[in-house]
Write a protein that binds this DNA or RNA. Structure first.
Length: 560
RNA sequence: CGGGGUGUAGCUCAGCCUGGCUAGAGCGCUGCCUUUGGGAGGCAGAAGUCCCCAGUUCGAAUCUGGGCACCCCGACCA
């Protein structure tokens, strides 16, 4: 059926909404794709929903292709399921009660529920299984942002795999990784599968799919030579070489009155700031004071520190610092400190200026291994100018949207929920699970972020709301309108999705709306083209029309 | 949760500092006319809880206090 724009609900806006910042947010609202109902709560309007469903269908096909079975689990969930796995205390979880006081939650993921069902798997003969659904998720986000980028309610495709052993887990995981690559490629997205930050449940089977874009919450690090991609939080990188001053046989004190920053220190001593070290005392959850050391020009990565300490930590207070070092912040260093020292790899070789643990003094020529014994770890946050850890190539830093996340959760849920099976040897074992999510809304937003120009969206073919936008510049001419209708019907019969702008509007408005909506091809019928028994066609990405015979339109659209 | 910003017509905004007649503009909307290849023009018109509550004042969109909502930065993000 040809969609008649005169009948559709596509409220476009001439101006950017005042509260929008991200390009995808602006264009999706302006194009009438989405509207906000409340902070982080959005309606997909008819054409927005059309795009959403196209993304869903691609996801569905690729999930089915790896043996996934679609189902539908409820949103309303009894709290007991989550109490069993200990996840009720997650602050993002929405809670509610029914009239008699029974407690429920609105989950943001369905591991508990799917594992509840997986208890019906009794034998290794039934494994592996991949179950998935598309359903509404709720998250009580402290700060929704960026239109569809971070929301409080959204639809997610979440899939769950169940396997009998590590080999099966690996197979399921890699099948999903490949399926996801196909999904994003089909959606016209540039994405990278990268090691996700490990976090609580992490481990090596935790991979994020990042789509570089103008807005987003992650930073993607890629090598110019294409051999390395990582999330900034866990990325490895090679910092530049410092210009070291002359080597010293032993640390030498130097007075540095009033110097509290690396910048001031480097300036005062006339040295490279990369030839200094920065001391950050932190206190672990167990209450132990640990000294983290990074190069003066580097930033400490909190994620990496978390990994290095195998747990959370907080910056030490002024009193704790004074008690442990006998000096205040700004003059701290490794020498003379009694506790554990974790030093960044960049401090392994060379002599650095460090705090002397004496207010107003520093030490020159401090050398790891000779003057103090640290445990080395990668602690620094990579930054512009670093080189690729694989090949030494230049690294690129781009903001990115996380469009998918796949990870392995082992027995985290099957244990507490007692989802077990009998293995071939007759022993009872917990199912090994994996979890695989894709947010179609984010895919859609990322597609707009990656494909747009100053006039509007340029949808990738596979997810465009319509394949062809036929503009009837009829201006009261029933003949022109008739030809446009005929043409649209022809394209429709050939299986294309067609939207016909039959509105009683001026040409300029139709062109502007067509550009904004962003369908891949535009077909214009007007008095001028009729004179030539022709129509004008153009791809959305181009800026000029091509006049072709009416009879050639279908072929042109299909061959383009 | 910390910091910053905004809230006036459907949308984008002016007015607020320095209180004062009936609260404005552009776009959009309704009717009529004209026009019809990049948001054209004319005439007529509809449309407001000036975010809410309280206070100050003869008088509050404007000043004060409290609250709410939304946006941005940060924290958070199993």
């Amino acid at each position: 059926m040809v969609a008649r724009q005169s009948q559709l609900f596509i409220p476009t806006l001439r101006e950017d909404p005042a509260d929008a910042e991200a390009v995808s947010h602006k264009l999706l609202v302006r194009g009438g794709y989405i509207r906000q109902v409340s902070a982080g709560v959005w309606t997909f309007q008819p054409i927005g929903w059309r795009v959403h469903r196209k993304v869903e269908q691609i996801v569905r096909e690729e999930m089915d292709a790896i043996g996934g079975q679609e189902m539908l689990m409820p949103v309303l969930t009894p709290v007991e399921l989550w109490e069993t796995t200990g996840r009720v205390s997650i602050p993002e979880l929405f809670h509610l009660e029914d009239r008699s006081g029974r407690r429920f939650i609105l989950p943001f993921t369905h591991e508990e529920t799917v594992t509840f069902h997986a208890r019906e798997i009794k034998s290794y003969r039934e494994l592996p299984k991949i179950l998935y659904h598309f359903s509404v998720k709720d998250r009580d986000e402290p700060r929704p942002r960026g239109g569809l980028l971070r929301v409080r309610e959204f639809i997610m495709k979440d899939a769950y795999s169940f396997d009998r052993d590590e080999k099966g887990v690996l197979t399921s995981f890699e099948a999903h990784r490949e399926a996801y690559k196909k999904i994003f490629a089909r959606c016209g997205l540039e994405t990278y599968d990268v090691q996700a930050e490990s976090g609580v449940m992490g481990g090596k089977f935790s991979v994020d799919f990042l789509a570089p874009s103008g807005s987003g919450e992650n930073t993607l690090v890629t090598c110019e030579n294409g051999d390395y991609a990582a999330d900034l939080e866990v990325a490895r990188a090679v910092p530049r070489e410092p210009r070291f001053p002359e080597r010293l046989d032993a640390p030498t004190e130097v007075e540095t009155p009033g110097v509290a920053t690396i910048e001031a220190l480097a300036t005062l001593l006339g040295i490279d700031d990369a030839a200094t070290s920065k001391a950050m005392p932190v206190v672990t959850e167990g209450g132990t004071l640990v000294l983290a050391l990074v190069r003066g020009d580097d930033r400490l990565s909190e994620t990496k520190l978390y990994d290095a300490l195998r747990g959370a930590s907080r910056p030490a207070t002024g009193e704790e610092i004074r008690a442990a070092f006998g000096a205040g912040g700004g003059s701290l260093g490794p020498i003379g400190f009694e506790g554990e020292i974790v030093a960044d790899e960049a401090l392994r070789e060379g002599q650095f200026v460090a705090g002397a643990n004496r207010d107003g003094w520093h030490l020159r020529g401090v050398e790891a291994g000779r003057d103090y014994e640290p445990r080395f770890a990668d602690l620094r946050e990579p930054r512009e100018g670093d080189r690729c850890p694989e090949c030494g190539g230049a690294l690129r830093f781009r903001t990115a949207i996380e469009v998918g996340h796949i990870f392995n959760f082992g027995t985290f849920y099957s244990g507490p929920l007692e989802a077990t099976f009998l293995d071939e040897d007759g022993s009872e074992k917990p199912l090994l699970g994996g979890s695989y999510g894709i947010g179609p809304g984010r895919v859609l937003a990322a597609a707009v972020e990656q494909h747009h120009d100053e006039r509007g969206i340029l949808w990738p073919d596979a997810i465009a709301p319509y394949d062809a936008h036929v503009l009837a510049l009829h201006g009261g001419s029933s003949e022109v309108l008739g030809v446009a209708e005929e043409l649209a019907a022809g394209l429709d019969e050939a299986g294309l999705g067609v939207i016909l702008d039959d509105r009683d509007e001026r040409p300029g408005e139709k062109f502007a709306d067509a550009d904004l909506l962003g369908c891949p091809v535009r077909v214009t019928v007007g008095r001028k083209t009729l004179e030539d028994d022709a129509v004008d066609v153009r791809r959305r990405a181009e800026t000029t029309d091509l006049r072709i015979a009416r009879g050639d339109v279908l072929k042109w659209v299909q061959d383009r």
